[in-house]
Amino acid sequence: MAVLQLEEITMEFGGLRALDLVDIKVEEQQIYGIIGPNGAGKTTLFNIITGIYLPTGGKVIFKDCLLNKMHPWDVARQGIGRTFQNIRLFNKLSVLDNVRVGSHGVSKSGFFGSMLGLPSSRREEKMIVEKAEHLLELVGLGEKKLEYADNLAYGEQRRLEIARAMALNPSLLLLDEPAAGMNSTEKVELMDLIWKIRNEMQLTIILVEHDMNLVMNICEQIAVLDYGRKIADGPPEVVKNDERVIQSYLGAEA
């Protein structure tokens, strides 16, 4: 059964049609890639899935649940975590606190419980810290947990975003250009990390990425967008050799 199903998604900004009848189906525990030239509507698609934009047409179905008119925080609580193309961390919070905030959607302590330090919220807090520390180890930031987030190097910030998204215990993880600005060593590490979290936590991952090497290596299924339309989808080998994809995005070999 498909975990995420996008049916005829259309998004119009004024007169501009950013997405035009896009259908995408992501299966359980798949690593799914979305590629395409700049401005093709990839990030717009992420913003529609996570409730930041309300699509002008079509349906977003996540595990039999219609996400269309949900607020971003409700979408997150359904179990969809994401990272951002232009990194969005809580800069003046510590690395650890960034990840702790990530578990907001799956924890419960309320205003008075927190303020009075009730046993239930203390217990919950302990679990949140343990989970955050575990996740930081996983992405290799355990040593830096007390630094301010904006003191981290670029690649570390990207990994911190992944750890924060994972704190939500998501069953679907959306990564928006996770390798942007990384060098080749970091990219290899990133690939390992993505595999590791998929296998260990058994979740589904959708990623938007421009690095073809990474996409072709890691993704099991790929959709190609161009000017808001899906022009191809399928496994990497199929997409790689698709006539239209080569023409509009990959470019013919000289």
Partner: peptide, 18 residues
């Protein structure tokens, strides 16, 4: 922490379920 998160980056805070 959620209060601080809203100050630091509201969109990211909402994506964390806030």
């Amino acid at each position: 922490r959620a209060f601080y998160a809203i100050r630091e980056n509201e969109i990211a805070a909402e994506a964390s379920g806030i």
